[in-house]
Design a protein around this nucleic acid. Sequence first.
DNA 1: CGAGAGCCATGACTTAGGTCAATTTATCAA
DNA 2: TTGATAAATTGACCTAAGTCATGGCTCTCG
Lengths: 224, 224
Amino acid sequence: MDKLAAVKSVMFFDGLPEEKFNKLPDISIVKKYRKGETLFVADVLANGFFAPIKGRVKIFRTSPSGKEQILHVFGPGEAFGEVPVFEGGTFPANGQAIEPCEALFFPRRDFKNMIKEDPDLAMKMMAMLSQKLRILVNKIDDLSLKETPARVASYLLLLRSSQDSDTFKLDLPKGQIAFYLGTIQETLSRIFKRFTEQGIIALNGNEITILDMDQLKDIADEGR
Amino acid sequence: MDKLAAVKSVMFFDGLPEEKFNKLPDISIVKKYRKGETLFVADVLANGFFAPIKGRVKIFRTSPSGKEQILHVFGPGEAFGEVPVFEGGTFPANGQAIEPCEALFFPRRDFKNMIKEDPDLAMKMMAMLSQKLRILVNKIDDLSLKETPARVASYLLLLRSSQDSDTFKLDLPKGQIAFYLGTIQETLSRIFKRFTEQGIIALNGNEITILDMDQLKDIADEGR
DNA sequence: CGAGAGCCATGACTTAGGTCAATTTATCAA
DNA sequence: TTGATAAATTGACCTAAGTCATGGCTCTCG
């Protein structure tokens, strides 16, 4: 994939006038990462803005004791790393490739200039930041007000909503899903088991089938 | 306080050129709320941007079973409610006055225009959004990776850092602090008791004294 | 002043979910 | 294919923290 095509695949730049668009490849750099490689570390000086064009990246924090909380997983078309561009200069969390990965990287300075000169791009950026705020508020709500089975059910419903069938594959290894949901493998495994025994889902490896959508929805909003 | 003075007290507008500044009172409305009054409700159409000039407002979500999670408490000089201006049109959480409160309200449309025409204001807005993202990421980290005593200790250290003495008053009723920390009154009460027994703090009503700063810091980063 | 309302403390009890450890099952490179 | 490494399951156990219930204290308002 050439750089211009790569830039085109980034949702964030959609609708940008041609002449601005053509500048983007010049101010960006293609970076490659292998599976498990670190893109950046929390609290160290970074000057971000990444847009993956292949593979996915997880954004996460870890506790001193090693437990991990995944905040988000970003794939092609999405973008991340804006925070240090505008404030603080450091990234609030860690970024690591969970798959072999290629990403466009926009150095802080040039990108900041560009956004300063283009009100539409600025408005898009504010929308993106706002959307991420909304997502994090929901995550806090989930973590502090819902119990784990409800979070698991919501997650399955979310996956389902971007599929065309009640049978689909989990998008991450189970251990990673657990970290995304603020829990651990063992707990997730037990919840899957219980859902299976109750005839709500069927699970075969990483392929899952939703058998009782209504009950799953009930559980997702805490209906027990 | 007249409107111009009120606008001046909002940090967010700091450094704005005179002529833009003078437009602000025209596009804003002063709203008053009594203690406990609701400013807005999550998920209903809002077109926000509030800047309190007197009193504080809590931003929170509640679970179906009634438990509350406070996301933030905003007071004079700060601003909130930007999310629906740029994205979605609804507020992600509820806002309620915890004290008699006066706030400037900037209707979406005018404010959006203003920000579109002023790159510096836009940059400030992006910085503010980024900062809030950072705060929420930290909150998620706290909620999912730390246990309650560590969160309590961090909270006390945070309060201390904006005071000039090791003795100071809690800024909220204890029940509200509990909700801010993602727990409940009883648990907080027990933790305060334990800290007191261990000689880490002394508590008298809502006046607290930090007796052993080192130990408090240890607990804050999970040192147990 | 006295009655009610809110706030806080504390005890008894329950439970969700984490830890540890032992196996089983996949995955993948050689 | 096989051996090795990682991922997932499952059981036994433990504990942080939530629920429920009671009682005291403080403040306000009639």
